[in-house]
Design a protein around this nucleic acid. Sequence first.
RNA 1: GGUCCGGUGGCAGAGUGGUGAUGCAGCGGACUGCAAAUCCGCGAAUGUGGGUUCGAUUCCCGCCCGGACCUCCA
Length: 446
Amino acid sequence: MTVLFLHNTLTRRREVFVPLDPRHVRVYVCGPTVYDLAHIGNARPAVVFDVLVRLLRRLYPRVTYVRNITDVDDKINARAAATGEPIAAITARTAADYHADIAALGVLPPDVEPRATQHIAEIITIIERLIASGHAYAAQGHVLFSVPSYPAYGQFSGRSPDELLAGARVDVAPYKRDAGDFVLWKPSPPDLPGWDSPWGRGRPGWHIECSAMSWKHLGESFDIHGGGADLIFPHHENEIAQSLSAFPGSRFARYWVHNEMLNVDGAKLSKSLGNFFTIRDVLAKAPAEAIRMALLRAHYRSVLDYSDAAVAASRADLDRFYRAVERTSPVEAEIPAAVLDALCDDLNTPAAFAAMHTLADRAMAGDAGASGGLLAAGKLLGLLGSAPEAWFRGGEDAGWIEAAIAERLAARKARDFARADAIRADLASKGVALEDGPAGTTWRRA
RNA sequence: GGUCCGGUGGCAGAGUGGUGAUGCAGCGGACUGCAAAUCCGCGAAUGUGGGUUCGAUUCCCGCCCGGACCUCCA
């Protein structure tokens, strides 16, 4: 059995992954809040955890992957108020857009995609348990989690409650007993989404949703909880406080996996800096696989600098891989050990790519097994999913290109190289690169 | 201010207590009418000052630099 190592945020070290039940691995990842198109930064966790789940499926007989959708949130409400579009329309459309965008990036759907609004009953149940056990209290239509009731609060994210207070940036609401207490339930006026509850009509706070949805679909204890590193505090700290307080004796998530942030051209995504791109924006400019590979080019726990140059480099790598597979027809092969080992070493995708380059070298030299191994590795990573023919020459009608190649061939036979080169230059200006080989001239999209 | 993470060749980016992957770029060569692709070869890096050690890029401490987080941003 291949051993999988994962860096666990809980212990801040690399650990051997041992599932609670080796016959059934359970994973929860925080999904999007659906109020606007997903940006390229949102794509990183989607792709990273897609690779992790693909790997887990390779290693274990059964994996349940839950990735939620947050469809009740003040940002959604604000968007509706600003645009006049009904909330239900915003969330439905944005969720559909999200699905389309990440599917284009080769991200497979999760097994369960729970929505917060469909788990109000579970949310209320957990809140009631927290109140009954003294971990939460109702005040002025709100229900708040009592941070002092959970002594380990702050341990996960490495903060003490005192420093959290010192760093608090918002005014403390008068109904809070302790400045650090956070909201589990808040009252909703008639014009906002709300559900009847023991505390009046209201809506859930953000953190409680994930505690409720993971509980419903994976149980009190499960294996892996993932998300972006920016969620460590407060979101995941709060989830842990809620779930462990509501279910004493449970473990909640045993391994916490966090992807680092993504910068664009060296800076954090920001609309004012002009480096804020949606997934849709970048898909319009480059092949989806090149974008996916660019997102896996750095280790998931390192800051990734996304740029056109990174996408171009990824595309060049993919060209090389596809060329190798095209040159030497692959035979059915297992995932090469070097690639599997790299991925099992805390998802070391850069090392996996290095191993794939070695396979490509061998495939270029005629090794059909290496070619098959390269393809198998690509499949595990969600890459090399096209036929080389489609990758290099897919798309529009190529008749005019073939005609130009024929004309250039005639010119070459007549040793009219000026004419031949002019034709080649013309094709190049139209994004078509020619390659003369022993078997004739081939072309590809540059 | 607090907490955390990181600083590896021109660029991207792994790894390691004992000759520092991989890719791109560069240089030389083969092939080609010339290119492209492919192949062969070459040069090129561990922020800084200490400590531990036979030996440190790796472990520890200081400094400098960069980044993230600090109550609802993946």
